Amino acid sequence: MDKDSKLDSFIGRVINEYRKKQGLTIAEVSEQSSISRGMFSKIENGQASPSLDSLLRISKALGVPISAFFKEFETEGESAQLVRADSRLEVVRRGTKVGHTYHLLNYDSGQNRKFEPFLISLDNQSEIFPSFSHEGKVFMYLLEGEMIYRHGKSTYHMKPGDSLTYDAKVSHGPEELIDVPIKFLNIIIYDSK
């Protein structure tokens, strides 16, 4: 396998990891990036060399910098990362469809990712409250607003400064938005394998 083919395969694996970690389908990322499903599938499977424009559109859809696709190809990662407030990436997650805004606060990649920190904003009192369920444990810290948050069969009335830690495999999500806008830190911690 030549170096170009290895790079295409590597980029495809990284894209696949990001997409699956975020619980997104090929169709969702394809639509967000304006790349046909067939072409996106070929890129993800390492069967096509993506243009820089395609990689930029995919990076925006997944909420990662374009450099994340190359970060570990031939170099070791940095030991510290500064993400400036004006360069946080807005990412697409399952709650995006009902008005939740997700900003990823760290761009770590690879199979050994230990956590994902998000700043989540809920700006309107939507009547649709999705249930979420995914891998890991979550530490949640309410910065602004007031809400009732559900985890399994229990509900928690949260005000600024309150925190909640829970198993993310159990169904969870906002039950009632009392005072909007609501902003909270949501840190997903993955089990080490």
Rank of each mutant, 00 (worst) to 15 (best):
A68W: 00
F40P: 03
E74I: 00
R88E: 06
S54E: 02
G99F: 06
D53A: 14
S67V: 07
S79R: 11
G77H: 14
G46S: 06
E76A: 15
R37L: 14
L119S: 09
K60C: 07
V98A: 04
L62I: 06
D53E: 14
K114H: 15
A48E: 07
V92Q: 08
L119K: 00
A80D: 06
L105H: 06
D108F: 09
G95K: 00
S109D: 08
T101E: 07
E127S: 13
F118L: 05
R88D: 06
N106W: 11
V64Y: 01
R84E: 12
F73S: 06
R84A: 09
Y107M: 07
F73A: 06
A80W: 09
D53Y: 15
I43T: 02
N124F: 10
S126V: 12
S87R: 15
F70C: 01
R57S: 11
Q111V: 12
T75I: 10
S54Y: 02
D86Q: 07
K97A: 13
E116D: 13
S49C: 10
A85E: 15
E76G: 11
H100M: 11
S109R: 08
E72D: 15
G46D: 05
S54H: 03
F70Q: 00
R94T: 15
N124H: 13
E74A: 12
L55P: 03
V64E: 02
V64W: 02
L105P: 03
R113V: 08
F40A: 04
R57Q: 08
A48F: 12
L104K: 03
R94S: 08
D108M: 11
Q47I: 12
F40M: 04
M39P: 03
K71A: 15
R94H: 14
K97F: 13
S59H: 04
L105S: 05
E44W: 05
L62C: 02
E76N: 13
V92M: 10
P50R: 03
R94Q: 12
P50L: 01
A80T: 14
L82R: 09
Q81L: 15
F115C: 08
E44C: 04
F129C: 11
G38V: 12
V98Y: 05
A80C: 11
L122E: 01
P130D: 04
T75W: 02
P50N: 09
E74L: 04
P117G: 03
S67N: 12
G63Q: 02
A61H: 01
L89N: 00
L55F: 05
F70V: 03
T96H: 03
F73L: 07
S67H: 10
T101A: 07
N106H: 14
R93D: 05
F70R: 02
S67M: 13
R88A: 00
R113F: 11
P117N: 05
K97L: 14
I58T: 01
S131L: 12
D108Y: 12
S87Q: 15
S54V: 08
A68I: 08
R93G: 04
G99V: 10
F70D: 06
V98N: 00
